[in-house]
Amino acid sequence: MESYKLTHLRELESESMYVLREVAAQFENPVLLFSGGKDSILVTHLARKAFWPAKIPFPLMHIDTGHNFAETIEFRDALVEKIGARLIVASVQESIDKGRVVEEKGVNASRNALQITPLLDAIEEHKFDCAMGGARRDEEKARAKERFFSHRDDFGQWDPKNQRPELWNIFNGKKNMGEHFRVFPISNWTEMDVWQYILLEDIEIPNLYFTHMRKCFERDGMLLAYADFMQLKDSEQVTERQVRFRTIGDLTCTGATLSNASTLEDIIDEVASTRVTERGGRSDDKRSEAAMEDRKKQGYF
């Protein structure tokens, strides 16, 4: 008998392509939020597959904290060039200059939470009615309750206790003027699925994910990359370490891991044996038990 089975990676791929096509069909002006991290690279890859041989029918948008890894920006520009996509950059620095947000003070200052304002401003300016992101439900407990199609009111806010039920694969993207949706095409993927699929499909990712020598310093048990805009405490010493990154976000709050993993296979072995979640290395989540839920309610990714 012939077999009609999909492997779990192909089933996840198919589900994500379906969601991306629903977005293109149900919304007039969607946008894909692109951070340069592996998850947004994955969503971009799935979008290419969903609309091939046509180009991706929506632009990519990068919320630029100004505190980037140089490698991320190089990678972003090369990818956009290669796939012929339109890129929009919304800048946190600009929002600071305009006085829309105030920079956090002190050594632990991060621009991570400041991304909310330029994000919501850009959504309003470009009249986007749907912003897609690479968030996954396995990342964090508030995200475990997130829908594929997540409704936001006209203040961009999430109301987690009052979400629309999501049945079968029928997505309800109806909304009033001024409201928008956040859509998460890779909701059901785990960190392991993402890496295995990157290997399966041979997807290019920034070198930051592989082992390299980098100037780092330790803070609160986390290893942070050094950059000249970082304020160091007196006790903190910058040393050269062999590291890689498990997630890539704002440079000021993304922890590095000591690692020799130089290939995707090495990374997969490392992920399989690791005992700490991916976001365990993100100081932005450590601020309080409900840090992510609070940011999401205000309009965070």
Binding site: K141, A144, E293
Partner: peptide, 24 residues
């Protein structure tokens, strides 16, 4: 506690909404 994701759920010790979990 692993499965109660929202602040209100942890405070009240109840589950409000469908949550999705993953393992392999």
């Amino acid at each position: 506690l692993l499965t109660d994701g929202l602040r209100a759920e942890r405070e009240q010790g109840i589950t409000i909404d469908v949550a999705y979990r993953y393992f392999a």
